[in-house]
């Protein structure tokens, strides 16, 4: 239904954006600097630790959704099994830390490597699948990883989970102050969104966009569809795992349910969708809206009713604005600007 805003306006968007950049160049730099400054002091502007906690969660979920978006939003790989990569990242770095005393900063890369490899393999074997078949394959993969996390008890301690003993210090990515996690989360988001932006502007990104818009057409003009889809899947998995490590260090306790459950995969995708799939900042916007909203609804309405509202909202949003909030807001802004330009 809302799909008539296809490729055409997207091109128009590019040119208006480019024109705006030329016109607003210096102001943009100032605005960017101001935003960075606010982000750096942001946790100290919040009334209490509770809000800082929520802000850190927004960043972690924003990073997870952005990582999901790399594959789903840009290469059409709508995954419902991404919690598996979150779990792989969390468990890899945590086990390395607990068993071999390897810093999570290094464990993070190990986790990313393992998840990237898994993403590569999964991407390779599912690349022929389209539509719901791909969704179901990723869903099954997520369940397999969850069942393994529960049952490989010698490795993961099963449902008992792993407690990360608090031994504060930056080398262990364990901090007494919440604010420190804000900066870790900020760095994480900067990396994921940065990669997304680079991707959007690179040839890789154009290939992916071409694949998402029309896979057959892309193939026919010589885009190596398969290769790029797999690369996107692996990159997405690896970055999700990195966020998993940060999550583990933040909560300092992981268990199969809180790192690999199906509901988490849904939540990751949902945030990206609400914010805007296939846009660099959409998933982040989604996290800014969804995470506090979830908390508030739960506090105000209690469990069942709040999730009812959550479900109803989800249905409404995907029906009414399937491209998500960001493209829709951009459209509003563009329309307003056009109106102003016309009247001027």
């Amino acid at each position: 239904m809302a799909d008539q805003t296809g490729a055409g306006p997207a091109v128009a968007e590019e040119t208006t954006a480019a024109a705006a950049a030329r016109r607003w160049g210096p102001m943009r730099v100032v605005a960017a600097l101001a935003i960075i400054a606010v982000l750096l002091v942001f946790p100290y502007l919040l009334p209490s630790g509770f809000w800082v906690d929520m802000a850190v969660q927004v960043l972690i979920w924003g990073a997870l959704a952005s990582a999901w978006n790399l594959s789903a939003g840009y290469a059409g790989g709508l995954s419902l099994g991404h919690a598996a990569f979150l779990g792989v990242g969390a468990y890899t770095s945590t086990l390395l830390f607990l068993e071999l005393d390897i810093s999570p900063w290094l464990g993070m890369f190990a986790g990313a490597g393992v998840a990237g490899l898994l993403g590569l393999v999964l991407g390779a074997i599912t690349l022929r699948l389209r539509g719901p078949f791909f969704v179901l394959a990723t869903l099954a993969f997520g369940f397999v990883v969850h069942i393994l996390a529960v049952n490989l008890r010698d490795l993961t301690r099963g449902a008992a989970g792993l407690v990360i003993p608090f031994d504060g210090g930056w080398e262990n990515m364990l901090f007494a102050s919440l604010e420190a996690y804000w900066y870790v989360g900020l760095g994480l988001v900067a990396v994921v969104v940065g990669i997304t932006l680079w991707l959007e502007r690179s040839r890789f990104g154009y290939y992916l966009t071409a694949i998402r818009e029309n896979e057959d057409a892309a193939r026919s003009v010589g885009v190596k569809v398969v290769r790029w889809k797999i690369v996107a899947a692996a990159l997405s998995a690896a970055l999700t795992a990195v966020a998993g490590t940060v999550y583990a260090q933040f909560v300092q306790y992981i268990d199969p349910d809180s790192t690999t459950e199906f509901e988490l995969s849904v939540q990751i995708a949902l945030i990206a969708i609400v914010g805007g799939m296939g846009t660099a900042f959409g998933p982040l916007l989604g996290a800014v809206v969804i995470i506090p909203l979830g908390e508030v609804l739960r506090a105000e309405l209690g469990g069942g009713p709040s999730l009812m509202v959550y479900g109803a909202l989800l249905v409404t949003i995907v029906l009414a604005a399937p491209r998500g909030a960001l493209p829709w807001l951009q459209q509003l802004v563009r329309a307003a600007r056009r109106r102003r330009e016309v009247s001027a």
């Binding site: 239904m1 799909d3 789903a72 709508l78 419902l80 539509g131 719901p132 969704v135 849904v266 995708a269 949902l270 969708i273 799939m277 469990g303 069942g304 009713p305 709040s306 999730l307 009812m308 959550y310 479900g311 109803a312 909202l313 989800l314 249905v315 995907v318 029906l319 399937p322």
Partner: peptide
């Protein structure tokens, strides 16, 4: 009805949302 012909993400997440809605209606 509204998901027919819509992008795939709409189809998947509309029914997922419905599932969450019904499950929690039953819980309530």
């Amino acid at each position: 009805k509204r998901t027919i012909g819509a992008p795939e993400v709409t189809v998947v997440f509309a029914t997922l949302g419905l599932s969450i809605l019904l499950q929690n209606a039953a819980l309530t």
